[in-house]
Measured scan of single mutants.
Amino acid sequence: RELEKFANEFKVRRIKLGYTQTNVGEALAAVHGSEFSQTTICRFENLQLSFKNACKLKAILSKWLEEAE
């Protein structure tokens, strides 16, 4: 439930900031050390990743959002 809420909020905030899914994937290299594909970001936003992978990505995306805003 919390993950679903974060995924929805993330998408809204990403769009408000003017980032595409591809931009986010590339920008994550600075935060995490490796890029993520547009497909991975899309699957996260649509809750199509495994729970374990989504939880890992949530932590990375939270950190990125803090820096982007």
Rank of each mutant, 00 (worst) to 15 (best):
R1V: 07
E2C: 00
E2V: 01
E2S: 07
E2R: 05
L3G: 06
E4D: 05
E4A: 14
E4I: 11
K5D: 14
K5E: 13
F6K: 03
F6R: 02
F6S: 00
A7I: 15
E9F: 10
F10Y: 06
F10A: 02
F10I: 00
K11P: 01
K11R: 13
V12W: 06
V12T: 14
V12S: 14
R14Q: 03
R14I: 10
R14H: 10
I15A: 11
K16D: 04
K16S: 08
K16Y: 05
L17A: 08
G18W: 02
G18V: 01
G18N: 00
G18F: 04
T20F: 02
Q21P: 09
T22N: 13
N23R: 13
N23P: 00
N23A: 15
V24N: 05
V24P: 02
G25S: 15
G25W: 13
E26C: 07
A27K: 07
A27P: 01
A27T: 11
A29L: 02
A30W: 04
A30F: 04
A30Q: 11
A30H: 08
V31I: 14
V31Q: 13
V31Y: 09
V31S: 13
S34E: 14
S34R: 13
E35F: 10
E35L: 10
F36P: 04
S37L: 04
S37H: 04
S37N: 14
Q38F: 08
T39S: 12
T39N: 14
T40C: 06
T40R: 02
T40P: 00
T40Q: 10
T40K: 03
T40I: 05
I41Q: 03
I41H: 06
I41N: 01
C42L: 05
C42Y: 10
C42Q: 15
C42F: 08
C42R: 15
R43Y: 02
F44T: 00
F44Q: 01
E45Y: 00
E45V: 02
E45P: 01
N46V: 05
N46F: 02
N46P: 01
L47Y: 07
Q48Y: 03
Q48M: 07
L49N: 02
S50Y: 02
F51Y: 14
F51R: 11
F51K: 12
F51Q: 13
K52W: 08
N53M: 14
N53W: 10
A54W: 09
C55Y: 13
C55M: 15
C55T: 12
C55R: 09
L57K: 07
L57A: 07
K58G: 05
K58V: 05
A59S: 13
A59P: 15
A59Y: 09
I60A: 09
I60V: 13
I60F: 04
L61I: 02
L61G: 03
L61C: 08
S62I: 13
S62M: 12
S62C: 09
K63M: 11
W64R: 03
L65E: 03
L65I: 14
L65G: 03
E66I: 09
E67F: 07
A68P: 00
A68M: 13
